[in-house]
Structure formats: C-alpha cells, structure tokens
Design a protein around this nucleic acid. Structure first.
Length: 884
RNA sequence: GCGAAAGUGGCGGAAUUGGUAGACGCGCAGGACUUAGAAUCCUGUGGGCUAACCCCGUGAGAGUUCGAAUCUCUCCUUUCGCACCA
C-alpha cells in the first residue's frame, strides 16, 4: 500500500489567504490546522442558554481514557459531530460537550504493569486524547469538559448516594463475588478466564461479602412502561431492555416443611401445573441447602462444588445440570403429599426466592433433571387431547391446555386454574398472586482503589454511619499504586482511620468504591452546569435536558442506558430535574471491524499479524487469491472480519490516518463505509477512495474560483439539459436533507452528493446560464457536505468569495420549481417481469397509462396471443400486465 | 444456554411504504497521457458462450402475493449483551 505524497507546509499561515484564490493542490494539513485554530480562537462552539432559541443537545458517550483514541471513538464522535453541525446550520442552539469516564479497572492494570499511579496515567491519557479529538475538528464545547475522577464531580455521586440511603433506595446486604484464593482478591468477570484467575491461574471461588445495593427494582415498572414513550429509540434496544427487566405474572406458593415450622417459598408462572410437582429444588446458597448440608458430608461437598467457578450467568447457563437430594421434605399445599427437596445448580439464588417447584411433565429443564435422577414425571395438562409419553420431551409439553389429574381443578384452562388455585392458596395463607421481575437490584460496591469512595463510616458502636454532607467529598488519595493483591486503600490508614460523626469515637472509613456505571449514570446532567459547586445541578439543566440525540455503541444497549434511566428518575423524585427520560433519541452505532490474519506455528500456537503488514494478490476478476506477509513474502491465513482488538492484532491507529490524509478524509471514510447502526469494515483502499473524492471536490472549487464570475441565472431561458441539471441539484438537497436530518444514513447522503459532483464535472456548459448553474451546484454540494467534511468545505466556501464563514451559513432549501417535471417514466411489467418503459404525462389518467403500457413494443411481444387477465397500475411507479 | 440483530456482485454497501435488484465507492480489465512509473482522465464490469435476445440470481428450504432482498415459517452462519470491562 502506497500513500499519495502530501506536500505539507512547515507551519499553517496566520493571515487568512486572499479571497477568490485557492491553492491548486489540496493540502488538508494546512487548511485543517488553520480552521481549527480559528474556531478555537473565536470560541464558535462555546454555547450558553438562550431561551429565545430552540436548543439541541447532541451527546456522544464519553470515552474511557485508555491511552489513545480508537476507531470506535472516531466513528462515534464523527456521527455526533455531523448531527451537531447539521442542527447548527438549521438554526438550533447546539450543545455538544465532551468529558472523560475516568475511573476504572484499566488504570489499575496499567499501574500494576508500570508502577505508575492510576491518577497520573489517567490524566496523561486525557491530555493526549484531547489533542487527538481537537485534530479531528469536532464542534465540541471544551469549556464544559468534565472528568469523573475529579472530586468536584464525584462528590455529587456521594451526595446522591446519601439521599438515596435516606430514602431506602440504598441498602447493605451480601453479594456474590469472584474470589482469587491465591492473590486474596476479588476479581472482575473479565479477569476470570475459564474459571481461573487471570494472574494466578487459581480456580476461582464464589464468596459472599457485604455490599451496597441501589434499589432499581423499585422502579422496574416505571422503567418498563417508560419504554413505550421512547419513540426515538431503536426498537431492538427497547426489546432488549424489556426482556432484561423481565416482568412476569405468577403465583408465590408456600410448601410447608414436613418436619413442621415454616414454609419453603417458590415463585412460578405455571401454577396450573402445581399437581404435577414431584420435587422442589433450591439454589446452593439457599438457607435450606446450608441447613441440610450441616452434618451431611456428601451434601456439604456438593454445595461447595457448586460454589466453584465464576459468577457469570453465561457460564452458569451452559454448565451441566446437576443436583443432590437433601433428605428434607416439604408438603404439597393441596394434596399434602411429601415432596423431596433437592439442591440444584441450575436454580439461581438471585431470581425469585432461590427455589423452584419441579414439574417434569411440563418444563423441559425439570424433565431432563427428573430423567437424570429418576424423579416422577406427572402429566397434568391436557393439550388438545394429544398423547403424552414420558420417554422423550416434546415441544408441546409446555404449552397451555386444560388441567387433568388435578382434583377439583380438572377441566379448567390456564387462566381459570391459576385464578382458582391462587385464591385457594391465599385462603390457606400458602400463596398469592405476584409480579416478579428478572431485574435485580444494582450492587455498586467494588473492592477496588480507582473509583469514587462510598461515603460511609463504620463505627463499632453506631454501626453504619453516613458521612455528613458538610464533610463531602470523601476524597480519594491519588498517589497509591495497586499491586493486584486487593485494594490499597485497606492498607492506607491515612484514608480509613477516622472518627464516628455520631459518637466521635475512632472508626473505620468504608474502603470500597463505587461501580463506574454510577459515574456515567448522570454525567450528561453535569454538562449543563459543570462549574456549579453548590449543587449537583442548577437551573441551567432545565434548558438543556433532556438530551435530544444520544449516540453510542450498541454494547451499552442494556446496562448503561438502564442505569441512566433509573438515576434520572431518582433525581426527578428528589426535585433535581423535571424530565423522566434522559435521552429522547438514541442512535446505537455498530462495531468497527478489520480482517484478522494469523499463522499457526508447529506447536499449534497462533500468532496474529496486523493487516497493515499484509499484501493481497488478486486474479483477473479482482477476487483475492492469496495474502502474504510483506516482511517475508510467505502466505498468512485469514480468519475473516472481527472487532478491532489488541488480542487479534487487527487495530488501526486513527492517528496514522489523520496524519496521512487529514481529518476530513477520516471523517468521510467513516461516514461513507456503512450506515451508522451497522458494523463498519476497515479498508485502506476505501480510505484512498474518500481522499480521491475530496481532491476532485477541491479541483471543482479551484476551477470555479479561478474562472470569471458567473452572472445570475436567467430562469426563463433554460435548455432541457440545464433544467435537468438544476433538477439534479435540488433533488440532491431533498435527498441529503432527509438522509442526514431524519434517516441518519450518511452513506447515502454522501453517495447523492458524489452523483451531483459527477454530473457537475460532466456538464462542461460554458454559457452564462451554464456557469451560473455550475456555481449553484458546487455551492450546494459544499453546504450539504459541510457537516461531514467541515474543513475542506469551509476553505472552498471562502475561496468562492463568501463573506459569511461556512460555519455560520444556513442549510440549503430546495427550489420547488426546479423539482417539477411534466413527464414521468413508468416501468411496465408482464407477469411481474420488466418488459418495457413508457414516458407519460405527470397527470396522465389510469386509462392513458394503461393504453401507453399496452402499446409499448417490448410489452406487446409478451402479451400477443395471450389473454390479459388484469392490469395493475401503481400511480407514479409501474404497470403490471397479468396474462394467463 | 437465554435475549437481540444481521446475511445482497470479487469487496463495502444501495434499493426509505411489498413495485426497475446492484445507486455510490473500492477492486479488476482495457484505453488515453508518459522515455518509464506514480498520479490523473475515459470506457467496461452479477452469472449463464462474444453480442443481441432470453434465462438464472439477494445465506438454504418452503409459503403468502399480480409482484418478495423486503412479509410468514423452518434451518444454517456471523455479531452484540448476559448484571465486577467500559
């Protein structure tokens, strides 16, 4: 791969170049640096609240400062910038802020590797990435920049935590974590690989520790019903959130213990199958399992075994279903039959009551479990009279039907049976109808250093004591260096030694920090008033919120977005905002992929090669025949496309792209390669193509600016060709406005402008009118591309003699008179196949169209000698002649 | 395992409401320019024999319809999420 030689100048010029003069060579480095400097100096993107103007809050998900920008960031922020600049040209007061999701695990990993304190590493990364963002020419208001590791920001995490604590929305209970027995530390899920610790390779254990939880389940119904009003969100995200919340209506049933004393509660959505229950299964963490294991060594061993491995649900779901009889029994609430209690590894302690009734006849998982352990299978639902066989599971076994072998409930359908049984259980105080959510409360405690301290003091006398508001923020000491063996705060007395705010006795400060999802749950509020130190937010929030357009990766479809919706509601209930939903419109961008090249060495080890080091060979049709490593000329294997990642060595550094071609080429390629919601495949060749187009655009500008000025258009004296070119110009305006303003399909908008530029370059009309139309066309193309490639368009705009900078120009309006046409072309099909085309008057009647279609030569050949059964006329589109 | 989405030429993609499949770009081929190359420009480019005609063609298989890339069902493949990565 060769790159065009760009003749960079040593330094950008300070004075603006003379108008109507353009360098004949397109030099992105010069024009981009100059414009970026100008924008910064004149503070064009710094905005303030102006009630007289309609606001537009355009927000991209803030980055984690991992070191340098990656392609996903460039894509994300280019999308946001295009929308922001478009809305600005439409006259809106546009806020587009940027900040840093600055707490998190990678800073601790870097500290372990290099011995650098996370604070220093993070701040250095921020400085570098900020420079990179500026070089891409994004229209960001840097005066509102925030970093979540700044005490001025995170003190309000702590403040809201305390308000939630006061209202019972925060509570302390035990939670399960991954425990590395060698390093004596808690591991994040991503630090567990195949059930073992990433550093030690030790088998991970599950451990119960005290943690603070936020009661998101109290808002479950609101978070669910609120989805219906989010018209600006992708349907798939709403469906995923809805399934995540997982509302189900069912019955809570109590099974009395056989030895007397208490009941075992289960939740079921299939109460109608209650007579088919042949056992009850509890999770390994269930108190009953622990009680039964006491003095039963086999059971103790089994329960301990269940506690090995990671806490990840995906791991739990694929593990072999196993169980063991506890020897305990409960009684069926209606028949009084004794049912055995089993411990089963497929029962989740976190869902419902941590116990399920086993109905092998009508639940596939229970069926498999019963087969494995020889438990009775009792069919109690009649589904359309079909024959039930316990030999093998059939898909219809869990369908709704009519009760049988269920005593007085026989013959009832699903709803009637559930209603009757729930009422009878309620009468015996052994059950009730209930709504159950799959959603669990949000555990926010992290046994980690680089995060927001939880504002609690543990006093031997007073217990858990909140830090008083006037002592906020609890500041995280910044010089510590984690070493992988737990949280260094626990070994830092200057931090944890304190006095109880209530009794004044020596006490210990909480050393856990908050989940970083807390930081990102409200940063978009803070952008509206980043400088206030008296409150979390102030009255300016009312002007800017809600966010009009939020843009971020699809990988955040559930957690981040759900937590943000939850925090917004909590802030609303505290009177801090009036909005229910933080993000009116959501755009979820796809991942950035690149090809993966690898070689397998003799011992089976795989090594990955960066695509930049690989050359391709093609056959005559352009199909690739071979990929070879440039260094040694030997072939490498392709593993197809995959997300850019360090482990697959297929990343491309955006900085190299910007350095070689400039920001505009990078932006154009990103927007042209695919629509924003889809994955984007990296291609060096396509980058070249984007650069080539910009150079052609530049040349059109050079020609126009260099020629004699065109007179104004004489609309009365247009030739057909001139009228057609003007129609093309204004059709492009309509198309691009729809693509950028409504559909967000920037790729098709760019394609439309390319078509227009091709038509302009081909026109070659040197008449007065011809030159005027060419100028109109080029200026239109420049305006339409301005949000996507802001530097080159601004430079051409200025060279064309405009006094007003492009950044302050308005979006073009289509001239309706140029769009009108007297004749239209219709497609004619015979039996659905294209056989001809006819020109008809735009206002032709259906009869005229029909006659014209049947008169067409191509059509007649296929209709001749056949009976016409019907003729379908779709006005403005086509005619379909149906013959026998 | 569960939940969500996507599969269209050699490649990225277009076809917006069920109505001309392949816009636009890349790649490739031929030509112009050039001592030569690079760059640039022009022409061609889904498959079936060169062309015309025609036939086939949107992951696989069925279905609905005058008409299906688009709607329905089954299957296959890939991507994202699964609560301590962000």
């Amino acid at each position: 791969m060769r790159y065009p030689a760009l003749h960079f100048r040593s330094a950008p010029r300070r004075d603006p170049p003379p108008q109507n003069r353009m360098q004949s060579l397109y030099e992105p480095a010069v024009i981009e640096a100059e414009l970026q400097k100008l924008w910064e100096k004149s503070r064009v993107f710094s905005v303030c609240e102006d009630p007289a103007r309609e606001k537009f809050y355009c927000l991209s998900m803030f980055p984690y400062p991992s070191g340098k920008l990656h392609m996903g960031h460039v894509r994300n922020y280019t999308i946001g910038d295009v929308i922001s600049r478009y809305q600005r040209m439409r006259g809106r007061n546009v806020l587009q802020p940027m900040g840093w999701d600055a707490f998190g695990l990678p800073a601790e990993n870097a500290a372990m590797a290099n011995g650098v304190p996370p604070a220093r590493w993070t701040r250095e990364n921020i400085a570098y990435m900020k420079k990179q963002l500026k070089s891409l020419g994004f229209a960001l208001d840097w005066e509102r920049e925030i970093a979540t590791c700044d005490p001025a920001y995170y003190r309000w995490n702590q403040w809201l935590f305390l308000r939630m604590l006061e209202r019972g929305l925060v509570y302390l209970t035990t939670g399960t974590v991954n425990w590395d027995p060698v390093d004596q530390t808690v591991l994040a899920n991503e630090q567990v690989i195949d059930g073992r610790g990433w550093r030690t390779g030790a088998l991970v254990e599950r451990r119960e520790i005290p943690m603070y939880y936020m009661r998101i389940t109290a808002y479950a119904d609101q978070l669910l019903s609120g989805l219906d009003r989010l018209d600006g969100w992708p349907e798939r995200v709403k469906v995923m959130q809805s399934n995540w919340i997982g509302r189900s209506e069912g019955v809570e049933i109590g099974f009395p213990h056989a030895d007397g004393g208490g009941v075992l509660k289960v939740f079921t959505t299939r109460a109608d199958t209650l007579f088919g229950a042949s056992y009850v299964a509890v999770a390994a963490e269930h108190p009953l399992a622990e009680r039964a294991a006491d003095g039963n060594s086999a059971l103790t061993a089994f329960v301990a075994e269940c506690r090995h491995g990671s806490i990840m649900e995906a791991d739990l779901a694929v593990q072999e279903k196993r169980g063991m009889d506890t020897g305990l029994h409960v009684l069926h609430p209606f028949t009084g039959r004794k049912l055995p209690v089993w411990v089963a590894n497929y029962v989740l302690m976190a869902y419902g009551e941590g116990a399920v009734m086993g109905v092998p006849g009508h639940d596939e998982r229970d069926f498999a479990f019963a087969k494995e352990y020889g438990l009775p299978i009792l069919p109690v639902i009649d589904v359309g009279g079909r024959e039930y066989s316990i030999n093998a599971w059939q898909p219809w076994y869990d369908e709704y039907g009519v009760c049988k072998h269920s005593g007085e409930y026989d013959g009832l359908d699903y709803q009637a049976a559930v209603n009757a049984m729930a009422a009878d259980l309620a009468a015996k105080s052994l059950g009730n109808k209930r709504v159950q959510y799959r959603l669990r409360d949000w555990g926010i405690s992290r046994q980690r250093y680089w995060g927001c301290p939880i504002p609690i003091i543990h006093c031997g006398i007073c217990g858990e004591v909140p830090v008083p508001d006037d002592q906020l923020p609890v500041v995280l000491p910044e010089g510590l260096v984690p070493d992988g063996t737990g949280n260094p705060l626990t070994r830092h007395p200057e931090f944890y030694e304190c006095h109880c705010p209530k009794c004044g006795k020596p006490a210990r400060r909480e050393t856990d920090t908050m989940d970083t999802f807390v930081d990102s749950s409200w940063y978009y509020f803070r952008y509206s008033c980043p400088d206030t130190d008296r409150a979390m937010v102030d009255e300016r929030t009312k002007y800017w919120m809600p966010v009009d357009q939020y843009i971020g990766g699809i990988e955040h479809a559930i957690l981040h977005l759900l937590y943000s919706r939850f925090w917004t509601r909590v802030m609303r209930d505290l009177g801090l905002t009036e909005v229910d939903e933080p993000f009116s419109n959501l755009l979820t961008q796809g991942m950035v992929l690149n090809e993966i090249f690898y070689r397998k060495s003799g011992d089976g080890r795989i090594s990955y090669w960066n695509p930049a080091e690989v050359d391709a060979q093609f056959d005559q049709k352009g199909q690739r025949t071979l990929s070879v490593l440039r260094a040694d000329g030997l072939p490498v294997e392709s593993a197809g496309m995959g997300t850019m990642s360090k482990s697959k060595n297929n990343g491309v550094d955006p900085q190299a792209l910007v350095d070689r071609y400039g920001a505009d080429t990078a932006r154009l390629f990103m927007m042209f390669a695919s629509p924003p919601e889809q994955t984007l495949e990296w291609s060096d060749a396509a980058v070249e193509g984007a650069y080539r187009f910009l150079r052609r655009l530049w040349n059109l500008g050079v020609e126009m600016a260099g020629g004699a000025p065109a007179r104004s258009l004489d609309r009365g004296a247009l030739t057909d060709a001139q009228r057609e070119l003007r129609r093309k110009i204004h059709q492009t305006v309509v198309k691009v406005n729809d693509d950028i303003g409504r559909r967000y399909t920037f790729n098709t908008a760019i394609a439309a402008v390319m078509e227009l530029c091709n038509a302009l370059a081909r026109a070659g009309d040197v008449s007065e009118n011809g030159r005027a139309i060419l100028r109109e066309g080029l200026e239109t193309a420049v305006l339409l591309l301005a949000p996507i490639v802001p530097h080159i368009t601004a430079a051409i705009w200025r060279a064309l003699g405009h006094e007003t900078p492009l950044i302050d120009s308005s979006w073009p309006e289509a001239d309706q008179s140029a769009l009108a046409r007297s004749e239209i072309e219709l497609v004619v099909q015979v039996n659905g196949k294209l056989r001809g085309k006819v020109e008809v008057a735009a206002d032709a009647t259906e009869a005229d169209i029909r006659a014209a279609a049947l008169a067409d030569g191509g059509v007649r050949r296929f209709v001749e000698g056949k009976e016409i059964r019907k003729v379908i006329v779709v006005p403005g589109r086509l005619v379909n002649v149906v013959v026998e």
